[in-house]
Amino acid sequence: MKQVNLTITFDEEKLSALKRYMGKKELDLDREMTDALVKLYEKYVPAPVREYIDESDVNAAAPNKSRRSPKPVTPKPAEEVEASQ
């Protein structure tokens, strides 16, 4: 699934304090923000829509299979192999 970057505005001092105290608890701000977004997604996006998106993601990740079958390799007769050597 294609990822996007989000840009939000937040008070610089508050962000600095948040990072400092999360760091003391060995927590990652990016991970916590991602978890919060996932919870919002699950709360507001109806289940059938989420299932459709998940199925689309799985289908997009599957490798495309070639519609043509490969040509069978026919071995050269022994006389041609010896002549080319």
Rank of each mutant, 00 (worst) to 15 (best):
Y41T: 06
A36M: 08
K24R: 06
A60I: 14
P77Y: 09
T7R: 13
T74R: 11
V49T: 04
L18C: 11
E79K: 05
P75C: 13
S84E: 07
L18P: 00
L6G: 13
K71V: 07
A83L: 09
K43D: 06
N5W: 12
D57L: 12
A78T: 01
D28R: 09
G23M: 04
K76D: 05
L18H: 05
P63G: 11
L18T: 11
D28S: 12
R68L: 11
D30K: 11
I53K: 04
D54E: 14
P48R: 11
L6R: 02
S84N: 01
G23S: 10
E55F: 10
P75V: 15
E80S: 08
K43E: 10
R50L: 08
N59H: 08
R31E: 09
P77E: 08
K71A: 12
S69P: 00
E32G: 02
E82K: 12
Y41P: 03
V58G: 05
K24W: 03
N5G: 13
L27F: 04
N64I: 15
E12R: 10
E32K: 02
T7F: 07
T7K: 13
E79M: 06
K39S: 05
P48I: 04
T9S: 15
D35M: 03
A61Y: 02
A62C: 09
F10I: 11
E26M: 07
R31N: 02
T7L: 12
R68M: 13
R31T: 11
K71L: 11
Y44C: 06
N5T: 15
T7M: 12
K25L: 07
S84H: 01
E79C: 03
D30I: 10
E26Y: 00
I53V: 15
K14Y: 02
